[in-house]
Amino acid sequence: MIQPHSSLPEQNFLARFTSWNTWKDILFIIIGICMASIGLKGFLLPNGFFDGGAMGMSLLLEILTPVNLSILIVLVNIPFILLGAQQFSISFAVKSSLAIFGLALLVHYIEVPAITADKLLIAVFGGFFLGSGIGFSIRGGAVIDGTEVLAISVSRKSSLTVGDFITVFNIFLFIVAAIFVNIETAMYSMLTYFSASKTVDFLINGVEEYLGVMIMSPQTEEIKSMISHGLGRGVTALKSDGGYGEKANLFPERKVLFCVITRLEVTRLLTEIEKIDPKAFVIQYPIKDTKGGMIKKRPLH
């Protein structure tokens, strides 16, 4: 069948869109490896501190062995990259390999002077720069710390969640550091890890935390109008069927409203719902990320 001519502009748009996303990913990965190299060379390496995860393992091995850190970064992450190729995609593995190799080159060849000798500042800002590097790389569709790839794989085959596995992994890592290095370095390195993890969360999840809200009420249309026109947010009406209680069958065509708002807007939404129906049943739950719709765009999206 001959494709209509209108498909050509659509193909051009898709090509431009794909190209833009590719360049955006490359930019994020470059920023990521630069930020991570500053954290490593300017803060952590000169003072013998380390982080959690695969990067922390590389830094700990650099302290305990004569092997150069740039080589260790590549060697430690190779199993995670191979696992990522199986669990996710070849393109993910390729981008991650290039990001890790680029970071190793920067760590080996670029000299960054030690920025401070204060241990607290080293732990906090070293973690901040390293976490920024990991976060930007993830935004670019790659990893420079492969622990989460292993964590996802383990979570699929066991009862452990991703967070549980990463916590257990890092506890073991810090115990080894306390035994073979010293407990003070291990404690400061734990602070580095917390700083890095919070920075990664900030870059991945953004400044605003989104909530999904489901509303069940007989005054569906009024609440729907309030959300759309009063709050200026999108809302979806889902057909539902009650299954419990005396009033379960009184409204055979009842609807459940669903909308996504920021945490800053939830108080106003609940107040407005209560004005319309004080007995409305409202469910809230956190949402990791959103795209499209009437939600405000996040930075770095």
Rank of each mutant, 00 (worst) to 15 (best):
126 G>W: 00
126 G>L: 02
130 L>D: 03
130 L>N: 03
131 G>L: 14
132 S>I: 11
135 G>I: 08
137 S>Y: 04
137 S>L: 06
138 I>T: 08
140 G>D: 06
145 D>I: 04
147 T>K: 02
147 T>D: 04
148 E>Q: 09
152 I>D: 04
159 S>T: 15
159 S>Y: 07
160 L>R: 07
160 L>S: 12
161 T>M: 01
161 T>N: 09
166 I>W: 00
167 T>Q: 08
168 V>G: 13
170 N>L: 03
175 I>A: 05
176 V>D: 01
177 A>R: 00
181 V>S: 04
181 V>F: 01
184 E>S: 09
186 A>M: 05
187 M>A: 11
188 Y>H: 08
191 L>P: 12
195 S>K: 12
197 S>C: 10
199 T>L: 08
201 D>G: 11
205 N>P: 07
205 N>W: 10
210 Y>N: 10
215 I>A: 05
216 M>I: 11
217 S>T: 14
217 S>F: 14
219 Q>D: 11
224 K>P: 01
225 S>N: 10
226 M>G: 03
227 I>S: 02
228 S>I: 12
228 S>N: 04
229 H>Y: 14
230 G>K: 01
230 G>V: 00
231 L>D: 03
233 R>S: 00
237 A>F: 09
240 S>M: 12
241 D>R: 13
241 D>E: 10
244 Y>L: 07
244 Y>R: 06
245 G>R: 00
248 A>W: 08
249 N>L: 12
249 N>G: 15
250 L>N: 06
251 F>Q: 14
251 F>H: 13
253 E>Q: 12
254 R>P: 09
256 V>A: 09
258 F>C: 04
259 C>G: 06
260 V>K: 15
263 R>Y: 06
268 R>W: 02
270 L>S: 06
273 I>K: 07
